[in-house]
C-alpha cells in the first residue's frame, strides 16, 4: 500500500528524514516509535504532502505522493492529529461532517449517503451522544474520539495517527487503541500510528518501526524491536524489558538514573558513558 524507498525529506534549513525505506501492507497495524526529534512527525508530514519536496520514492498505491492531488489523497489517507487548536466553537456534528469535504464539489450539499457515513463514523467512535456539543468544551478523551470520527468520515484506506494518546490517561489510551484495533481487524483499515508509550505500542501494533535521528534503527515485531539493547541504544536510557503476564507482549520499564550503576547488568548503554 505504502512503499517507501531511500526517502529523504525535511525543511529548507534541515534534512530530518535521511534515506529511509519501509513498506506498509494492506491491513497492517504499524507503530512508529522513537525519541523526540527522530523524524516521526516529519515522516507523516511528507506522506500527506504537508512538506512538498522529498527525494527517493514515496509510493502510495504504486503512485508517487507528489503526483496525487491533495483532494484525491484526502479520500485515501486521513490523519488524526495529536491536538488541534479550535478557533471557533463548531458543533461536534458539523466538525465531523467536514470529513466529507474531499468528496464534495463546491456547489454540492451533503447527501443522504454522506449523512450515513458521518453517522457511521460517529457511532463507531462513540461520539453520537456528543452531536450537539461544542468542540471547544470537550474533554481530551472526547476530543480525540471526535478527531477520529472526522478522519473516518473521510472513508480512508490508510489512517495515520500522530500520538493520539499522549494527552490521555491510561483508561482513555486503552479505549482509543482498542477502537483502532477493532477498525483494523473488522474493517480492514490500515493503520500507522506514532506512539510515545512503548508499552501500548507493543501491546497493540503488529509491527513496530523504531526511528533514531531520521533513520530507521530497527523494524519488526514488538518482540524483535522492544529489546533492552534497542531501547537503551536509541533512548540513551537504562531499561528493563519483561513480558506482560497476560498478553505475553514485551513491556519496558525505565530504571531510575541513580540506579544505573547497580542494576546488576554489567554493560553500559551506548552513548551514556
Amino acid at each position: 500500500m505504502l512503499k517507501i524507498s531511500n526517502l529523504s525529506s525535511g525543511y529548507q534549513t534541515k534534512e530530518v528524514i535521511k534515506d529511509i525505506s519501509f513498506t506498509v501492507n494492506q491491513g497492517e497495524f504499524v507503530g512508529v516509535i522513537g525519541p523526540n526529534g527522530s523524524g516521526k512527525t516529519t515522516l507523516f508530514r511528507t506522506i500527506t504532502k504537508i512538506i512538498p519536496g522529498y527525494t527517493g520514492n514515496l509510493l502510495y498505491k504504486e503512485k508517487e505522493i507528489r503526483d496525487w492531488s491533495v483532494k484525491t489523497l484526502a479520500r485515501e489517507i486521513a490523519v488524526v492529529p495529536q491536538f488541534l487548536l479550535m478557533a471557533f466553537p463548531f458543533k461536534v456534528y458539523d466538525f465531523v461532517a467536514l470529513g466529507r469535504t474531499p468528496y464534495l464539489g463546491r456547489f454540492e450539499m451533503i447527501s443522504g449517503r454522506d449523512k450515513e457515513v458521518i453517522k457511521g463514523a460517529m457511532d463507531i467512535t462513540g461520539c453520537s451522544g456528543l452531536r450537539e456539543r461544542m468542540v471547544t468544551e470537550l474533554s481530551g478523551g472526547e476530543l480525540q474520539r471526535v478527531f477520529l470520527a472526522q478522519a473516518l468520515a473521510q472513508e480512508p484506506k490508510l489512517l495515520l495517527l500522530d500520538e493520539p494518546t499522549s494527552h490521555l490517561d491510561i483508561g482513555h489510551q486503552v479505549e482509543i487503541l482498542h477502537l483502532l484495533k477493532q477498525l483494523n481487524k473488522e474493517n480492514g483499515l490500515t493503520i500507522v500510528v506514532i506512539l510515545h508509550d512503548l508499552n501500548t505500542a507493543g501491546e497493540y501494533c503488529n509491527r513496530l518501526i523504531l526511528m533514531e535521528e531520521g533513520k530507521i534503527y530497527k523494524s519488526g515485531s514488538p518482540v524483535e524491536v522492544l529489546t533492552y539493547q534497542n531501547i537503551e541504544a536509541v533512548y540513551k536510557t537504562v531499561v528493563v524489558v519483561k513480558d506482560n503476564p497476560i498478553s505475553g507482549n514485551p513491556y519496558v520499564i525505565p530504571v531510575p538514573k541513580d540506579r544505573w550503576e547497580t542494576n546488576g547488568r554489567t554493560e553500559e548503554p551506548e552513548g551514556t558513558a
Binding site: 504532502k49 491533495v70 483532494k71 484526502a74 469535504t101 474531499p102 463546491r106
Partner: peptide, 19 residues
C-alpha cells in the same frame, strides 16, 4: 465549506483536501 476547513488550521485543511 472551504472556509470552515481553513478555520481548523493549514495542516488539517490539507489533510481534508483543501490547498
Amino acid at each position: 465549506r472551504d472556509i470552515d476547513v481553513l478555520t481548523l488550521g493549514d495542516e488539517k485543511a490539507s489533510h481534508l483536501g483543501i490547498a
